[in-house]
Design a protein around this nucleic acid. Structure first.
Lengths: 206, 206
DNA sequence: TACATATGTAAGCAACGCTAACTTTCAAGA
DNA sequence: TCTTGAAAGTTAGCGTTGCTTACATATGTA
């Protein structure tokens, strides 16, 4: 009885799911038009609701974007974790898969990806955003430390994790901007393995 | 006589320098409020001109941002070139200085830097933007090739240049977002030398 | 059933992006 | 020097947006 048929959903005064549906609508709009061109009003139209409704759930326009980004960060985190979990702890492929998941996310949701790293309005030191970012960061550190067989707070592991993080992040952005030579578009597996496997993480047991 | 005293400049019907002054005003606004929050109207106020004036020089709001980004790319290119030129061709410091110039630019103009890589509205395949980006990219390739003592189109050099580019770009972004552990904020010289000098560019003459 | 609260609507304001139509200035040729 | 067309400003105004205020309706709990 709690499951609503698609028919009877229309024209309930209380939407019941507006917050989540707005976030989804904005996610789509941002993906289509970029973060500066989406409009709250258009999202309202998509959700079938008046233009004043969002302000019962969000402080303002930026607060909606914040919500969208938080969801995206969680999605990204989950994707990275899943990718890493597909391989045993010290398999080099585990690291490559982690990086690949990052790049894949950027390519699958370029608009959101850019938005995640383009927020500067009032989110400079938002505790929730910072925590979500740190969490994603710590996945890389943990996996790297496991790979090296050292404690998670090992400085060497942290340094290498950071290098990996930088490389993958930069690669993701350069892919989106196609500011990389065309013939290098598909270096994911090969290059990640080369750089990550050989240069950055020379050998787990040395 | 062509040099205008600051006094007699005011209240000329023809502004004479509006295009450049608008770009500068928008640059400041973007740096302050971020790319989505700047308003053309506010830039007009800064330039002391009516809100319709910009449309004699730019197609629309996005076109203004495009101009700002193009200028920023040129500024960045010049900074990188200058930094590299401070060291002789095969000095490892030359590479490090190049990367450092990139990071420094991002830190000095974070709003513009984000804007440069956040444009997606209608600029997907803007030829001028693409060319400016490729030019910056090719500096890295050229310097790397020189360092390795090979031809500029050497595939090995291109690969290493791309890796350097990725790392530096990612590092820049992570610095801005402070999504890196706090104690790693000042790794510029040390880490660049470590990664770039040792891991990525093992030895120029091997 | 009554009521506090949550969640929606309607109406409206100020600001913005952009256009249309007009005005002023400049520069170049007769 | 005068004319004239293009370049570069202005004013006025349209439609949209972000957001607020006041009001309406539904929901959960006593």
């Amino acid at each position: 009885m709690t499951s609503k048929s698609l028919v009877e959903v229309k024209k309930k005064y209380h939407h019941g799911d507006l917050r989540e549906q707005l976030l989804e609508a904005v996610r789509e709009l941002v993906e289509q038009h970029g973060p500066d061109d989406f409009s709250v009003a258009e999202a309202c139209r998509l959700a079938g609701v008046s233009t004043a409704a969002p302000y019962k759930h969000f402080r303002d326009r930026h607060d909606i974007l914040r919500g969208v980004v938080l969801l995206a960060m969680e999605r990204m985190r989950a994707a990275m974790q899943t990718a890493a979990d597909a391989y045993p702890p010290r398999d080099p492929k585990r690291i490559a898969a982690l990086g690949q998941a990052y790049v894949d996310f950027a390519r699958a949701e370029p608009g959101i990806f850019r938005t995640m790293f383009g927020l500067t309005e009032g989110h400079d030191d938002d505790p929730e955003l910072t925590r979500a970012g740190d969490e994603n960061c710590s996945i890389v550190e943990r996996v790297t430390a496991e790979h090296l067989g050292v404690a998670p707070d090992n400085p060497e592991a942290k340094l290498r994790a950071y290098a990996l993080w930088c490389f993958v992040h930069g690669h993701s952005f350069l892919c989106l901007d196609s500011k990389l030579p065309r013939e290098m578009s598909k270096i994911d597996e090969g290059m990640l393995m080369l750089l990550v496997g050989n240069a950055m993480l020379p050998s787990p047991k040395e």
